[in-house]
Design a protein around this nucleic acid. Structure first.
Length: 221
DNA sequence: GCACTGTGAA
DNA sequence: TTCACAGTGC
């Protein structure tokens, strides 16, 4: 018996189709009144499921309580590096609102404006609140009083615009719980882009101290 | 300069 | 989906 050597391109040895993850929902309960969901991969050959990230989700509050995954520290040095990042995905059964909408900076400003009762922004953005109910967050006066003739002119600074100010990274970003950077393959990294694997986090912190913290974690061997 | 955290528009 | 863009830290 003998074998005939044959050349192959290295690329021919890869997968013909991209591997995609799925969420195995409601696999049990977890602390804080949450339900467990597992992001992972079906293994076609065995019928098994490779668990990547465990997500404890509170369906009443529609928020994630914690996530859990294994960081294979020494392997991170050899991880795939993908250009750009994918969009965040939703999935059925978790949220009653559009997560893309609520994370939009315009929505955050609108919400902060409403929470503060900030008259100036409400008048510009959303006039269905009765003027009599508005108050001015800078001058601490009912807006009806300002309407007479005391509306400030010139450098009017609005409080909501100071709190939600994207130019200073003052907005709530989709902060990864189990982060992209903790995984080796692109398929695993992409599997982290679910809304249930993110929580609102100030971008200034996300892109600052927290990022440095994460990078130190990834250097642990 | 590069890697990484993100964004919004078309 | 693709593209251009903002900001931080090494």
């Amino acid at each position: 018996m003998f074998f005939i050597a044959q050349d192959y391109d290295l690329s021919a040895l890869g997968c013909s189709d991209a591997v995609s993850e799925r969420i195995m929902k409601n696999t049990g309960s977890c602390s804080g009144g949450g339900q467990l969901n597992v992001i992972g991969f079906d293994i076609a050959t065995t019928g098994g499921f490779y668990e990547l990230i465990e997500v404890c989700f509170d369906s009443q509050e529609e928020t994630t309580l914690y996530t859990k995954h294994t960081l294979h520290g020494a392997n991170i040095a050899a991880k795939d590096v993908e250009e750009g990042r994918p969009s965040f995905k939703t999935d059925s059964g978790f949220f009653s609102v559009s997560m893309n909408t609520v994370y939009a900076q315009a929505s955050q400003l609108e919400l902060m404006t409403t929470l503060l009762g900030d008259a100036a922004n409400l008048l510009y953005n959303n006039s269905h609140t009765p003027v009599s109910k508005l108050w001015d967050s800078v001058h601490r006066l009912p807006f009806s009083a300002l309407l007479n003739n005391a509306i400030p002119t010139g450098n009017y600074e609005d409080l909501a615009n100071q709190i939600i100010d994207p130019s200073q990274q003052l907005y709530f970003a989709k902060g990864h719980m189990s982060p992209d950077a903790d995984f080796v393959t692109i398929a695993e990294q992409d599997a982290t882009y679910y809304f249930i694997n993110a929580l609102p986090q100030w971008q200034a912190f996300n892109n600052g101290n927290w990022k440095v913290n994460i990078s130190f974690c990834n250097k642990v061997r």
